[in-house]
Design a binder for these strands. Sequence first.
DNA 1: TGAACATATGAAAATATGTTCATATGTTAC
DNA 2: GTAACATATGAACATATTTTCATATGTTCA
Lengths: 103, 103
Amino acid sequence: MEQKNTANEMPDLEVLFELADLFKVFGDSTRIRIMFTISDNEMSVLNIAESLNMEQSTISHQLRVLRQNKLVRVRRDGKQIYYSLDDDHVKKIIEMGLDHVLE
Amino acid sequence: MEQKNTANEMPDLEVLFELADLFKVFGDSTRIRIMFTISDNEMSVLNIAESLNMEQSTISHQLRVLRQNKLVRVRRDGKQIYYSLDDDHVKKIIEMGLDHVLE
DNA sequence: TGAACATATGAAAATATGTTCATATGTTAC
DNA sequence: GTAACATATGAACATATTTTCATATGTTCA
């Protein structure tokens, strides 16, 4: 029988850095809250800010981080810009984490 | 039909902080590398350090973080202390992240 | 075009984080 | 007990990160 190799082989260093960078994005409560806020429906920046009772600027800065890491989708409609989670992938990562936290 | 509720309901603030803290642990390349290093077999602190070509102290500090977050198991055998990943849960979180990074 | 509104961004300040060095603690074997 | 080895830890330093403030950019509508 072949040896099972369940993603245990160490990936390239570069990939590991990317991986750490990805988790770093999830490692901030403001960004986590934003992600939950827009996980059901897209939302404008101001709406997110109001919803979390935080400054527009703070949200905008963090949305940029999410954007740069391709974790959110962006859609402009007139003056507002609507953000939503990029894909179910993102939700799954969060759910995995939640499982661990809640267990 | 009832409304589907796919973990989208915002958990308590406290839980969100814990969640962010958990991901924060994954958000450092040294810790990620340690986790990969011990994902197959348990390893002593010095072995991990040598394997990653880093200082014993650095590894020890980071292992503490992993310990505090219950991501590793610890076993003492004589002078050495052996670390291994706590459960498959941890691997799954990493794999989820890898999927996103590699896609 | 200009006023009003929504979002983005640069710089500064406050805080958090990671690594190193020196050293303490714990274990074994003599 | 003491020497030798393995690991842990505190303090200091360097770096990174988050938030705020002020302001720039982009859009709509009159």
